[in-house]
C-alpha cells in the first residue's frame, strides 16, 4: 500500500477536514485503488511525450492562428458593460450557512 493512514490524516488536516476512523480507512482504500489505476497507465512508455495538463492547449483551438491569437477566445476585454453582472447582494448571501445580512460569517478564525 502506497498511501498510509498517516498520509490521509496529513492531507485531511491541510484541507481542515475531520475524518472519523471509519472514513480514514475508506480513504486509504480508495486512494490506493486510484493510485493502482495510475500504475497501470505507467506501464506505457511516455519518454517522448510532453506532459499535458490542459487538453484545449492542443485541441479545440484554431490551428490556423498563431501565438496569442490562438488563445484569444479564452480571454476577454476589461469592460463592465455587456458582461455578466455581479449577483444581487441577497442572492450572493442566500446559501451561506451563516450571515448577518452584510458579511458571510464563519466561526472565529484563529491565525494559522
Amino acid at each position: 500500500m502506497k498511501v498510509t493512514e498517516k498520509d490521509v490524516a496529513y492531507v485531511a488536516d491541510l484541507g481542515n477536514l475531520e475524518l472519523t476512523a471509519e472514513e480514514r480507512i475508506r480513504m486509504v482504500r480508495d486512494l490506493n485503488s486510484i493510485l493502482g489505476h495510475i500504475d497501470s497507465l505507467n506501464e506505457l512508455d511516455t519518454t517522448n511525450v510532453q506532459p499535458m495538463a490542459q487538453i484545449s492547449d492542443r485541441h479545440g483551438v484554431d490551428q490556423s492562428k498563431q501565438g496569442s491569437e490562438r488563445f484569444a477566445y479564452a480571454s476577454r476585454e476589461d469592460i463592465r458593460e455587456g458582461l455578466r453582472k455581479s449577483l444581487p447582494h441577497d442572492v450572493a448571501l442566500e446559501n451561506a450557512p451563516d450571515s448577518d445580512g452584510t458579511f458571510f460569517k464563519v466561526p472565529r478564525v484563529i491565525e494559522r
Binding site: D100, K105, R108
Partner: peptide
C-alpha cells in the same frame, strides 16, 4: 478579506467580505 474585529459577536465569529 477577513474581519476578525468590530462585530458584537467577534469573540465567536469572523466576518468575510469577498
Amino acid at each position: 478579506k477577513s474581519l476578525h474585529e468590530g462585530f458584537a459577536d467577534s469573540s465567536e465569529t469572523t466576518g468575510i467580505d469577498l
